[in-house]
């Protein structure tokens, strides 16, 4: 899923740009939007019952029809959790607001925002959609384990598949209780060569008898302690092939793909293999 923030002062045309991008992108994929609100949203026009549920103490309430239309309310969700929930099912998430988030963003007008900024324009009505879409597509997509699992389940060969095996590599905060805690890891990548090596690895694994689909993803940039770094997902006919491929997949990825790790602990920071 590609994520794009649209930020700017009020009247800079943020909603207009979200509308224009949604219209454009729904031609190529499924679009979801997130709106940053400064006041609690007022959704109970219809839901007298869900308001009563909430007042009674329900943490989340969902109103759902037999046709699958729904709305939900909740108390404590972050932007990341929201994007994680959308990632398996959507190709694009347009986020109106959140100028401090570290998602790629379009800035309308003059506003100080957190990096990365992929495009600037004076107003949402005239902003160049081609440039914005191109800049967005150049970014690494937002990928979760569930994204990759949902993807392999859509493979045509899922009808022959009785097994999905996955590996998740995550940032380990400590080796043991006396180890100075790691705060984050930062990953650098030799882009073109890494893309080639990942493609080769995927092809090799998919060529194995009984393996029907393979997905690999390794994040770059900063990954905080406790967060996921790398995923290997295997869809296979049977569990034997699935287990073998997932283990070989991560082992080969670690050996062959030009990625470089920098570790930041409470005491120091250093690159792996730095003397």
């Amino acid at each position: 899923m590609q994520v794009l923030g649209i930020v700017g002062h009020s009247e800079s045309g943020k909603t207009t740009l979200v509308e224009r991008l949604t219209q454009r992108l729904s031609g190529t994929g499924r679009v979801a939007t997130v709106k940053h609100c400064t006041h609690p949203p007022d959704v109970d026009t219809d839901g007298k019952d869900t308001a009563r549920h909430r007042d009674a103490g329900a943490g989340e309430t969902v109103a759902l029809t037999d046709d699958g239309e729904w709305y939900a309310t909740g108390q404590s969700r972050t932007l990341d959790e929201t994007l994680d929930a959308l990632a398996p099912d959507y190709d694009y998430a347009l986020v109106e607001g959140y100028s401090d988030a570290s998602i790629p963003k379009v800035v309308l007008g003059d506003l100080e925002v957190a990096d990365p900024v992929v495009h600037r324009a004076p107003h949402g009505a005239g902003a160049d959609l081609d440039d914005i879409v191109t800049a967005m597509e150049e970014r690494d997509p937002y990928i979760t384990l569930e994204t990759l699992v949902a993807d392999v389940k859509r493979d045509p060969d899922e009808v022959y598949s009785g097994a999905i095996a996955t590996f998740t590599g995550r940032v380990r905060a400590q080796e043991g209780p006396d180890d100075p805690p790691t705060e984050l890891l930062e990953f650098e990548r030799y882009d073109e060569v890494a893309a080639e090596k990942m493609a080769t690895l995927r092809r090799d694994l998919e060529a194995r008898d009984g393996v029907h689909a393979v997905r690999l993803h390794h994040k770059t940039g900063v990954v905080d302690a406790g967060e996921d770094i790398v995923f290997v997902v295997i869809l296979a006919g049977h569990r034997g092939e699935a287990f073998r491929a997932v283990e070989d997949g991560i082992n080969r990825l670690k050996e062959e793909v030009p990625l470089f790790k920098k570790e930041v602990t409470v005491d120091e920071e250093f690159w792996a293999h730095e003397r």
């Binding site: 590599g169 790398v230 991560i250 670690k254 030009p258 990625l259 792996a272 293999h273 730095e274």
Partner: peptide, 8 residues
């Protein structure tokens, strides 16, 4: 030019 790779 780079040191041993360290992804994963």
């Amino acid at each position: 030019l780079f040191p041993p790779v360290s992804g994963g």
